[in-house]
């Protein structure tokens, strides 16, 4: 009962936050609200007993990405321009897609049902055997790091690639102060260069 009330309260707050994000034009407020949205999502994951996912959502969604978005805000404007077209077509697409997704949930097994396909495939084996095979009390870590170690290697490679892509896109130019190279002797010369090109303006 109390869990249902918490779920309803969290969903209401998430819906209200999403509506506020839609309506606000101040980008700073939008960034703050999306951080709050992530924190609410993390609370939702805790209510669903997915503590590891909640931890990641709170650290990445509410923490780091909010800071990164604020850093981006320093480069762009603080206000969003009013849209030049009406919202009705996008609204219709979103409502239809949402309705289709909700309709699809009617065929899904109840949350946490013991006879749901997801709980009959590999999950029993992980839960029963992982302590003897890997010896860790946290099954999530066993699955993530050992059984699905190859996937996790791929995920780490994705993060590596993201950092490399950001370096190439906005840190690659010589003479940019944000450049990853930290050579004072070169910087002075290059700064003069880029000023000539109007790059840093």
């Amino acid at each position: 009962m109390i869990i249902t009330l918490i779920d309803i309260a969290l969903l209401t707050f998430m819906g209200a936050t999403a509506l506020a994000i839609l309506r606000l034009r101040s980008l700073f407020a939008v960034v703050m609200l999306s951080g709050i949205y992530s924190l609410l999502a993390a609370s939702m994951f805790v209510a669903l007993d997915a503590v590891d996912v909640a931890f990641t959502e709170a650290a990445v969604g509410a923490g780091i990405s909010t800071v990164l978005m604020i850093a981006v805000l320093a480069l762009t404007g603080e206000r969003e321009r009013a849209p030049s077209h009406t919202m009705w077509l996008p609204m219709a697409v979103v409502v239809l897609t949402g309705a289709a997704l909700i309709y699809a949930t009617f065929d899904m097994p109840a949350f946490g049902a013991a006879n749901a396909p997801v709980n009959l495939h590999v999950a029993p084996r992980y839960l029963n055997e992982s302590f003897a095979e890997v010896g860790l009390p946290n099954v999530v870590t066993s699955v993530l790091a050992s059984y699905r170690g190859y996937d996790t290697l791929g995920e780490v490679t994705v993060i590596f690639t993201a950092a490399v892509a950001v370096m190439l896109l906005i840190g690659g130019r010589k003479g940019d102060d944000a450049g990853i190279k930290n050579e004072p002797a070169d910087d002075a010369v290059d700064d003069a260069d880029s000023d000539g090109n109007g790059d840093t303006a």
């Binding site: 850093a71 095979e133 890997v134 860790l136 290697l153 993060i159 950001v166 944000a178 990853i180």
Partner: peptide, 30 residues
């Protein structure tokens, strides 16, 4: 298994921390 998981988790942590710091430096320094 325990040793391997410790080592690869350390690798994951190193890459994630360094990538986040790098991305922050690049955005904030621009």
């Amino acid at each position: 298994q325990h040793l391997g998981i410790m080592i690869i988790e350390f690798g994951v942590g190193t890459t994630v921390a360094a990538a986040m710091i790098t991305i922050f430096f690049l955005f904030a320094g621009r």
